[in-house]
Simulated assay, not measured.
Amino acid sequence: MTTVHQPTRSLTPLLAPLLIGGLVVLALGVYGRVHTPTGFAVGVAGFSAALPMKAWLTTGALLLAIVQVVSALSMWDRLGVAIPPAVHRWSGRLAFLLTIPVAFHCLYALGLQYDVPRVLAHSGLGCFFYGVFTAKMLALPKRGTPGWTLPVLGGLTFTALVGLWLTSSFWFFTAVGLKV
């Protein structure tokens, strides 16, 4: 009787990505807390104000993140439909790019706030989103990681973005309306 040995998958390759991701969370949180908010950070070209800009860009990022989930399921052969891997890569790139002006405005103009529970949750989720995204991107090229690495880190990234959308865009659309 012969025994087939599966290659051992170690957590060691994940240490650096997780540590760096944790440092990103910490750095963003500390910066957001100690930086004196300016009240203004980015131009809102095409939008009436900063809040509508942030709400709509975050909504775009969320829609692209849904494409990310569907295309990831396709790549892992969970749908029975082949979606080109380029769809996954480009939807992720575009989603991330849409979050940059939003995050910059949040951190630079508003800082990390904790006086309102919704805003505290939003601030924490924003820091977590960039930290877990960093860890996912750094873990992506690593060989020998456990098979759950990318689905878990990708799922956490998606969940953080959904939480960000709920505590910002959804709040804005329901409290203020569908302003542009």
Results as ranks from 00 to 15, higher is better:
residue 63 L to F: 15
residue 83 I to L: 10
residue 117 P to Q: 08
residue 122 H to Q: 09
residue 125 L to P: 04
residue 89 R to D: 03
residue 128 F to M: 03
residue 55 A to W: 15
residue 77 D to V: 13
residue 16 A to G: 08
residue 51 L to H: 06
residue 165 W to I: 11
residue 123 S to H: 09
residue 128 F to N: 00
residue 150 L to I: 15
residue 22 G to L: 10
residue 22 G to C: 07
residue 64 L to E: 00
residue 12 T to K: 07
residue 36 T to L: 07
residue 1 M to G: 04
residue 170 F to S: 09
residue 177 G to A: 04
residue 26 L to A: 15
residue 1 M to L: 05
residue 107 L to C: 03
residue 111 G to H: 10
residue 4 V to Y: 11
residue 117 P to T: 13
residue 83 I to W: 11
residue 154 G to H: 03
residue 59 T to I: 06
residue 151 P to G: 09
residue 52 P to E: 02
residue 79 L to H: 01
residue 91 S to P: 02
residue 130 Y to K: 00
residue 72 A to C: 00
residue 177 G to E: 05
residue 109 A to L: 10
residue 14 L to W: 08
residue 58 T to N: 12
residue 64 L to G: 00
residue 45 A to S: 14
residue 122 H to L: 11
residue 57 L to N: 06
residue 61 A to H: 08
residue 94 L to H: 03
residue 41 A to Y: 13
residue 9 R to Y: 15
residue 20 I to P: 01
residue 145 T to W: 05
residue 36 T to R: 06
residue 74 S to M: 05
residue 91 S to L: 04
residue 179 K to Y: 14
residue 147 G to N: 07
residue 89 R to V: 13
residue 81 V to Q: 01
residue 48 S to Q: 12
residue 107 L to I: 14
residue 60 G to A: 09
residue 103 A to I: 10
residue 35 H to C: 07
residue 137 M to L: 14
residue 33 R to T: 15
residue 165 W to T: 11
residue 142 K to S: 09
residue 178 L to C: 02
residue 40 F to I: 10
residue 123 S to C: 11
residue 115 D to T: 12
residue 125 L to T: 10
residue 4 V to T: 15
residue 144 G to E: 07
residue 61 A to W: 12
residue 107 L to K: 01
residue 6 Q to Y: 14
residue 158 F to H: 01
residue 105 H to W: 14
residue 44 V to L: 04
residue 6 Q to S: 14
residue 142 K to V: 14
